[in-house]
Design a protein around this nucleic acid. Sequence first.
DNA 1: ACAACATGTGAACAAGTGTACACATGAAGT
DNA 2: ACTTCATGTGTACACTTGTTCACATGTTGT
Lengths: 206, 206
Amino acid sequence: MSERKKRKPGETREKLMSAVLTLVGKGRHFASLGIREVTRQAGVVPTSFYRHFRNMDDLGLQLVDELGLVLRRMMREARENVLQADKLIEESVGIFVSHAQANRSYFLFMAQGLAGESRAIQDGIRSEMRYFVSELANDLRRLKMVDHLSDSDLDMTCDLVVRSVAFSLTDLIGVSADDEYQIEQIRKRTCRYLQLIFVGAAHWDR
Amino acid sequence: MSERKKRKPGETREKLMSAVLTLVGKGRHFASLGIREVTRQAGVVPTSFYRHFRNMDDLGLQLVDELGLVLRRMMREARENVLQADKLIEESVGIFVSHAQANRSYFLFMAQGLAGESRAIQDGIRSEMRYFVSELANDLRRLKMVDHLSDSDLDMTCDLVVRSVAFSLTDLIGVSADDEYQIEQIRKRTCRYLQLIFVGAAHWDR
DNA sequence: ACAACATGTGAACAAGTGTACACATGAAGT
DNA sequence: ACTTCATGTGTACACTTGTTCACATGTTGT
């Protein structure tokens, strides 16, 4: 195993994965996609599918991994841009919404997968969300914003935050990708949700 | 139009609808169901389907209507049993969880539909949720619990409450229907979310 | 140079799909 | 009694589906 092949390895693999994302982006549901349809969209012969995936769920699981990368990129950008605490919510939600637009298909896939028909994919996405929750909790601790909360209460708060933001995905699904006005409404509304939650957290004592 | 037919009318229609619910209850996703599969499950010949529905989305829309009835029953029961304010959250969430178990398939269908592939079904479910939000706002006003909130802020609060409870559905999906312990955990966690939200609402001034 | 290997291709098959048509049956309205 | 109508059935057809197999091709390691 000296060096990688010259002829781009895994090219078909990527074509298949982004074919799924394309179809999902067009409004299709992952659960309704078949192997032939995906290979057709990818411009590949059906047999090639089996060179890279055992079945559609397998492909879905690998998409969850890529989704994880997307989420981590988003987190990093948020950490770089959210320096002081006063505009924390607006900045973060703004970054979320713009990432959700830039990677619309990934987030559509995520929203679908939470109630999809593959248990493994459900668990994968839930796991990504849990990771996100714990990272958010760490960040808030570091910013000294939640000193009065126990670890357990902080975790609950972050969980509720992440859930609320994730639910906004189902709102974003409902508007066309270029309806700036509606998207702005969703952004503002999500900010208000988070503000309400943080007010609750600030006065949470028991 | 003197009287109804003796031979139960719409019998096949009901069989088809509950066939879908049965399949959904078994873990299948609505978007992946086909006409033939549904009629097979219902013990009916494929052609009969077209006597009652134009296509699967049509059936889904009518399922949303039935879901509305289920939700209204749940609301009524909550209103009857939640008399004083102190145990409001625990009682309400308890009623929700027990209804979600008793009508598991309906709520699975609801969770699926929010990110499903039929825009019409998405809108239908969202509409049911909006109705629920406005009713909840009315009830809270009547209980004199939120006198300091403007209509708009009250609506936002109720929206967040309903969303958080709805998101719990995706948790309920993940546990088998008879895992009492896990379900109890979800129930308690959902209560804490709502408590946090209401603490926030109580201290919400701007 | 040669073998091993990963990857892509085409043809083939049995099974499943949506939908149309002609027909049966029994209730409703006249 | 007769027509009308809603509902259910069986057959049929053209198409799509998942999956297998034998085969081609170019890259890797020796």
